[in-house]
Structure formats: structure tokens, C-alpha cells
């Protein structure tokens, strides 16, 4: 039986096949998966906010896209993945409540998604699949045996991206 490793909010985990990394209940948060298909090594990061420089100090770099992504890249590489083979998939970034006068913070999902892609690009990592936006929550998991990234919702079924 393959391991199921839970990744909390503002946290990340790395691992290798046959483990599966899972993170439950993402709203505006983003789940970013990294995967080296040859070595079958990967990671899953659950960020809440795009930019650590716009926030008050935090002890937790995994809360932000700009600090969390490089951290996870280093860890999967340390585990034996090849940096040049890494591919990323991202999901999440919803806006859960619709308000006509939505403040910036309520649209944080969109900013999260943009920033994640930017930072991955800057690190030379290709985003090969994406399921972002909407107004519903997602549970995401990456199967480190296949690299398949599963996105589960409550009314919109589940899909592998």
C-alpha cells in the first residue's frame, strides 16, 4: 500500500514513488506539484500568499510562493531529482465568495496563480498543467509513481491533470 503523505496549509513535502502527496481543501491557496518523471521524485507545496515582501515577517517561508517554491525545488533536487527534468502542475486560486466590491485580498487567488507561474518560469521550470480560478475548493494530490495530479472538488467531480 503506497503512502499517503499529507501536506498542510503553508507547508510542503517531498517524496518518491510509490508515495502520494495530498493537500486538502484549497480555496484561494495554490497547490504546486513538482515532478521528475524519470526518477519519480516530486514535491507538493501549499501556499497561501504570493509575495513574502508584501507581508509582515513570517517564520514560515512555505506560506508564500516567492519563498516556498525555491525551497521545494532545492529539496526535491536534494532527494535526487534532476532540476532540468522537473515539471510543475498547479491548481487552486479560487475566489470563494463573490462580492461586487471585492477587495484585493479577496482576489488573492488570481494573484497567487500568476505569481506561482512567474516564479516557476524564473526558476526554469515548465508549468505543464493548470487548473485554477473558479469559486470552489479543491483537494489536490500527486501520485509520485505516475506524476498524475488529481484535482477533486465537491460538485464538479475530479480530474487528473
Amino acid at each position: 500500500m503506497a503512502d499517503l503523505i499529507k501536506v498542510g496549509m503553508a507547508d510542503y513535502k517531498v517524496g518518491r514513488s510509490p508515495s502520494t502527496l495530498i493537500s486538502y481543501g484549497l480555496g484561494s491557496c495554490i497547490g504546486i506539484s513538482l515532478y521528475d518523471p524519470q526518477r519519480k521524485i516530486g514535491g507538493l507545496l501549499h501556499i497561501m500568499l504570493p509575495d513574502s515582501t508584501q507581508a509582515r515577517s513570517s517564520d514560515n517561508p512555505a506560506k508564500f510562493a516567492d519563498t516556498g517554491i525555491p525551497l521545494m525545488i532545492n529539496d526535491v533536487v536534494a532527494l535526487g531529482a534532476s532540476r532540468s527534468r522537473l515539471v510543475a502542475k498547479i491548481a487552486g486560486g479560487a475566489q470563494m465568495f463573490a462580492f461586487s466590491n471585492a477587495t484585493d485580498i479577496m482576489r488573492v487567488g488570481t494573484r497567487n496563480a500568476e505569481t506561482c507561474k512567474q516564479i516557476l518560469r524564473r526558476n526554469g521550470i515548465k508549468v505543464i498543467a493548470e487548473d485554477t480560478g473558479g469559486n470552489y475548493g479543491r483537494t489536490v494530490s500527486i501520485d509520485l509513481n505516475t506524476g498524475s495530479y488529481k484535482v477533486k472538488t465537491i460538485d464538479r467531480g475530479e480530474k487528473n491533470i
Partner: peptide
């Protein structure tokens, strides 16, 4: 209060709304 807004979804996703706001200021 603002006008109310309703969602039915996963608790984590719903709580994101307030948590990101707090997350900017601390842990």
C-alpha cells in the same frame, strides 16, 4: 456588516478567505 455571501464547500477552502488576510500579518 456587509451583505452576506454564502458558499458550500470544503472547510479549508472557505476558511482561506479569512486566513490569507491574517496570513499577511503573522502566523
Amino acid at each position: 456588516p456587509s451583505i452576506p455571501s454564502l458558499a458550500m464547500d470544503m472547510a479549508g477552502a472557505i476558511l482561506n478567505v479569512v486566513l490569507v488576510q491574517l496570513g499577511q500579518m503573522g502566523d
